[in-house]
Design a protein around this nucleic acid. Structure first.
Lengths: 118, 118
DNA sequence: CTCCTAATTAGTAATAGTTACTAATATTAG
DNA sequence: CTAATATTAGTAACTATTACTAATTAGGAG
């Protein structure tokens, strides 16, 4: 495992905001200034394929990455684009209805608290 | 409403396979041979914004369009990429859990019957 | 430790899906 | 019919992502 890959994984694990590849690349550049965006994409993809992190796909936007591998739905704010986790209740209700299938993407569009205030 | 727009809407309404912009463009070219792909995209977007058709966003693939405006989940076959509607039961269970929110995207990945046979 | 091989990288080019732009054409209201 | 407006075809541009390549780097055997 190269230091680049290790730094990318650390960046995903440190973040709580479901970052996209670009954001992760910017974060890792604090440590490795000339890391390539391609390297970030390749490693994020590999880490996701290996089940170490999770790729989350949101409508009309870059893919995001999640340190939490346990599947769960997400809320996307239509104003700022921020992503947060959907409540356990909704996730459980969905999974119960789906049966044993754990391969799904659920994205609910809802304005976040910060954007509502404005 | 231009004849292009009318043809695009008709193509979406005629199809049962949740076609993407490219597929719709090819279909419409049977009637209007030199219609531009840009025109197809623009009109599909507008029709979706106006609530006349529905845009469905699938992970890692082109957006697809649905004549059914009533929100519901979809099944994407990981082998052939085909899209079909999720059962009413699952959709209802999800909507009950979500409350009044009708703005969501649910995509379940499951191999379709045709691909299973191979 | 050193050499070899295989993996990985940075950087760039290429690709897919989509939107933006523009001059020309078509539609609509008066 | 005519002027204003909307829409088009065609092309260029853009974003997210993957592919390619030569150079660098790990990791293992001796």
């Amino acid at each position: 495992m190269s230091k680049q890959r290790e730094a990318i994984l650390a960046a995903v694990r440190k973040s709580c905001s479901h970052p996209d590849a670009d954001t992760i690349c910017a974060a890792v550049r604090a440590d490795i200034p000339n890391i390539s965006l391609g390297t970030v994409y390749r490693n994020l993809g590999k880490l996701a394929d290996e089940g170490i992190i999770r790729r989350i796909s949101v409508p009309s936007g870059a893919d995001r990455f999640d340190k939490t591998i346990c599947p769960h739905g997400h809320i996307v704010c239509p104003v700022c684009g921020g992503v947060s986790d959907l409540s356990q209740e909704v996730t459980q209700a969905l999974e119960q209805a789906l049966g044993d299938c754990r391969s799904y993407e659920l994205t609910v569009s809802r304005e976040c608290q910060e954007c509502k205030k404005l």
